[in-house]
């Protein structure tokens, strides 16, 4: 049995044998492990995984324990993508030389990185992997902050968020720069498949992960990961905040095939105002002061404009 798991509904999915164990030390209510479980459980194939330094890496491999039931490489901050690309190239070479028999099933190669490792520190490495066209999947666990080191801003931190290196106070409203549009950047690399997923929309996510595993070549997945510690909401609200993020279109769920064919995969029935999404997270609480009201208005305009842009691109097929 290899290939993707046939998942018709959640009941049939729940018969999957777990490949990611508990007793890792991620915060209670962390979305990282929800995403990792959904990805690992979606396939029957053997996996070669690596993780960039970040919450996921340090919390799932605290010596002398490991939480991974698959091959896993502990690597530096910047090079989870290259570590997996190297393993993929080695697999290809050894098969060519006959040192790995054709009876051994092909494994899948997956690299995980946080948004710091993807948007900032590992970007050059990631870009190189995509240019060389390795057959791998790169998953960015996007929690919009360097959560592992204490909440410094990254280039994924959105405008107005209070982070420890861009704190909100009497003279500042927090982060001043807008978030990098990493999905369009990766699509521009000529990647055959690029998608944004969210853990609360598990069915959409599984579909995209399956498609990603079936695609030959470098696949980029941007996974929205609500961070209970740095977004400062209560641990049990993770799914609620994720729902607000997808329904307010701050994280629109879409995919880009071959850099041109854009499909919106989730259209919320009731679009929630961005104000509700911001209000659920105390990292934005200063925006609700009267002097910063204009920022919320700008947020809404920006989100609306981007949604409009996605719809136009979907229609135009460019």
């Amino acid at each position: 049995m290899s290939g993707n798991k046939v998942i018709k509904n959640l009941k049939s999915f729940s018969t999957a044998a777990e490949r990611f164990e508990g007793s890792h030390v991620l915060c209670p209510g962390c979305a990282h492990s929800i995403i990792v479980r959904e990805i690992l459980n979606a396939t029957n194939d053997n996996l070669v995984v690596s993780a960039s330094t970040g919450c996921l890496e340090v919390c799932t491999a605290i010596y002398p324990h490991t939480s991974w039931d698959c091959s896993w490489i502990h690597i530096g901050f910047e090079n989870s993508s290259t570590a997996v690309a190297g393993a993929e190239a080695m697999n290809k070479a050894l098969r060519k030389k006959g040192r790995i028999g054709s009876d051994v099933p092909e494994p899948k190669f997956v690299a995980f990185g946080g948004d710091g490792a993807t948007f900032d520190i590992g970007f050059q490495w990631l870009s190189g992997c995509f240019e060389r066209g390795h057959d791998m999947m790169y998953v960015c666990l996007d929690n919009e902050v360097y959560a592992n080191t204490g909440g410094q801003r990254s280039s994924a931190t959105p405008i107005g968020a209070s982070a420890t290196t861009s704190p909100a106070g009497s003279t500042s409203y927090g982060e001043k720069q807008n978030k990098k549009d990493i999905i369009q950047i990766m699509a521009a690399h000529g990647s055959p498949y690029v998608a944004q997923v969210a853990p609360n929309k598990w069915k959409d996510m599984i579909k995209k992960i399956h498609r990603g595993f079936d695609t030959k070549g470098p696949v980029y997945i941007n996974a929205m990961s609500a961070c209970t510690t740095e977004w400062k909401f209560a641990p049990h609200e993770t799914i609620e905040v994720s729902d607000l993020a997808t329904d307010s279109l701050v994280f629109p769920l879409y995919e880009i095939i071959d850099g041109t064919e854009l499909n919106i995969t989730y259209r919320p029935k009731n679009i929630v105002p961005v104000r509700d999404y911001l209000g659920a997270q105390p990292r934005f609480k200063h925006l609700f002061k009267p002097e910063y009201e204009y920022l919320i208005k700008e947020w809404q305009e920006r989100v609306d404009a981007y949604w409009e842009y996605l719809q136009r691109r979907e229609e135009a097929r460019v």
Partner: peptide
């Protein structure tokens, strides 16, 4: 009702 929402959303495989 065995909907398994708790199973899919549990971060700790519990």
């Amino acid at each position: 009702i065995d909907c398994q929402f708790c199973w899919i959303y549990c971060p700790d495989t519990s």
